[in-house]
Design a binder for these strands. Structure first.
Length: 319
DNA sequence: GAAAAGGACGTAC
DNA sequence: GTACGTCCTTTTC
């Protein structure tokens, strides 16, 4: 895993693009209010209109999309005193911590206020998450990071993926036959015309991809696996890739014993759906996917564990 | 009822 | 030929 591209990380905190109604507030108070209150819904994520405008607020909204079920940690600032329970998954709750006494204007090394420092941390982390998400999608969908290069088939994959990942209303055939170049040339208004319910969000997502692909070399880290090499991916490789991204897919598939290669499919329908998207097989279901898994028994790639359990399989040669 | 197992055949590469 | 995808029946949990 590489680092975020300089272009995305170099947005100065002073250039945060924030919703107009929060412009007079400060730092984490905004994040707290935004995460906790209905105000946040008044402002849908939109990419910056000009290069002068920062991406940070855009990414903060994107972060909400990435973690729609729990972004409560973002509200943990100097003013957040009503912490009742520890987070269930500490590794998913990055420290924006500020236990330092004395209020929100304390300076941290670098001359930034604590709030600015915390926002920088949030921004940096969100950018990282965005890039990781894009990298994952590239691998699983076998598409390039640069949308301009997408074929009409790639565009359909990306649409299906984005719909699925962020629970957007299906666009159906609204973007059929469009290649990446045509898609990138479309305005937000054109997206809305084709998809009134989710066109603006799709456009915003596409803008993130366009921004991220500028620094592609730095974040792909030169890592080339089977799914990026143009070779058709095998099911067992796909399953391993999902297993390697517990942050994104732990709800669907997870290791029971990584050393022994034993894993459990927690949500068979979702795993099958992801596989179907990856292979462009909309009719894929768990029945068919499991049949393919069973073909691996004879080949010595996957087997059932010694103590057989439903939806639990074992790689014969765990890495 | 859902999952597991496996046979048979089709399809794309 | 390989690697699934699809459909099917039977068995197990």
């Amino acid at each position: 895993m590489g680092s975020a591209s300089p272009g995305l990380n170099s947005v100065p905190p002073g250039r945060l693009l924030l919703p107009p109604d929060t412009a007079s507030r400060t730092g984490l108070e905004k994040a707290a209010a935004g995460a906790a209150g209905p105000e946040r819904r008044d402002w849908s994520p939109s990419p910056p209109a000009t290069p002068e405008q920062g991406l940070s607020a855009f990414y903060l909204s994107y972060f909400d999309m990435l973690y729609p079920e729990d972004s409560s940690w973002a509200a943990k600032g100097p003013g957040a005193s009503t912490r009742e329970e520890p987070p269930e998954e500490p590794e998913q709750c990055p420290v924006i911590d500020s236990q330092a006494p004395g209020g929100s204007l304390d300076l941290v090394p670098g001359g930034l206020t604590l709030e600015e420092h915390s926002l920088e941390q949030v921004q940096s982390m969100v950018v990282g998450e965005v890039l990781k998400d894009i990298e994952t999608a590239c691998k699983l969908l076998n598409i390039t990071a640069d949308p301009v290069d997408w074929s009409p088939g790639n565009v359909q994959k990306w649409l299906l993926w984005t719909e699925h990942q962020y629970r957007l209303p299906p666009v159906g055939k609204a973007f059929q036959e469009l290649g990446g170049k045509e898609l990138c040339a479309m305005s937000e208004e054109q997206f809305r015309q084709r998809s009134p319910l989710g066109g603006d969000v799709l456009h915003a997502h596409l803008d993130i991809w366009k921004s991220a692909s500028t620094g592609e070399e730095s974040w792909t880290d030169g890592e080339v696996d089977s799914s990026c090499s143009g070779q058709p991916i095998h099911l067992w490789q796909f399953l391993k890739e999902l297993l390697l991204k517990p942050h994104s897919y732990g709800r669907f598939i997870r290791w029971l014993n990584k050393d022994k290669g034993i894993f459990k499919i927690e949500d068979s329908a979702q795993v099958a759906r992801l596989w179907g998207i990856r292979k462009n097989r909309p009719a894929m279901n768990y029945d068919k996917l499991s049949r393919s898994i069973r073909q691996y028994y004879k080949k010595g790639i996957i087997r059932k564990p010694d103590i057989s359990q439903r939806l639990v399989y074992q790689f014969v040669h765990p890495i």
